[in-house]
Amino acid sequence: MSRALQSIGRSAIGWLLPALLLVGWEIASRAGVISANVLPAPSAVGAAFWKLLLSGELLENIRISTLRALSGFAVGGAIGFGLGLANGLSALSRGLTDTTIQMIRNIPHLALIPLVILWFGIDEEAKLFLVALGVFFPIYINTLLGIQGVDPQLVEMGRIYGMSRSQLFVRVILPGALPSIFVGLRYALGIMWLTLIVAETISASSGLGYMAMQAREFLLIDVVVLSILIYALLGKLADTLARYLERLCLQWHPAFQNA
């Protein structure tokens, strides 16, 4: 019982600072320290949230953005994971592709926005392409690192005990690479939102980024602030999900056993 309370207490402590900030912000706004033209009070942002929620506009935009983010993530993540595996397992594949990938990696993917608009216009493909490209690298690099970091003594052990290549992969190599793959996953989720928001503010006709840009045109600062807060929450949500998955898959890891 007291242990359950303790664990609630531990997770609640992280929310203490945001809540205090919010209260301080509200007080400062009411006292007139912060002008409403610069930063509206949290209550005003709350009101905007409620209005947009009732009109259905907010949920629709969140839905569209989430869908874009996830499909881009699925495409980029799958390619990154696949290539990471291939290059981790085969020296030939690595020799063939790694140099190219490292060159492309050094181009900031957001610098491609003008080119992407020329190629795809402002349709869905443009956003999908950018998100996929952004997500690809952290997943690729960490999958590759994870596989290269698998303890060779364990691989030798697996061979001695007569594991086939596929058994070796499923029972030794993949689980050994998993901690590193999860690091890549969490990085990628952050980049996923970042890329999508930038892409949507520049070229879109729907979605959260578009909503924020429209609100700026009409000087609706409360909606702009609301969008920013929603990004923060979505990012936190994605990270929490990833951590939950990590905890589930890495139960064996000493770092996850003290809970």
Partner: peptide
């Protein structure tokens, strides 16, 4: 069978599953 100075157990498999490895094939 060979046994090394390090146990070389799979950290992600429980003790029983680690012994199962000895019955591969």
């Amino acid at each position: 069978r060979i046994m090394f100075q390090e146990p070389r157990l799979l950290p992600w498999a429980r003790v029983g599953a680690n012994v199962d490895v000895g019955l591969t094939g």
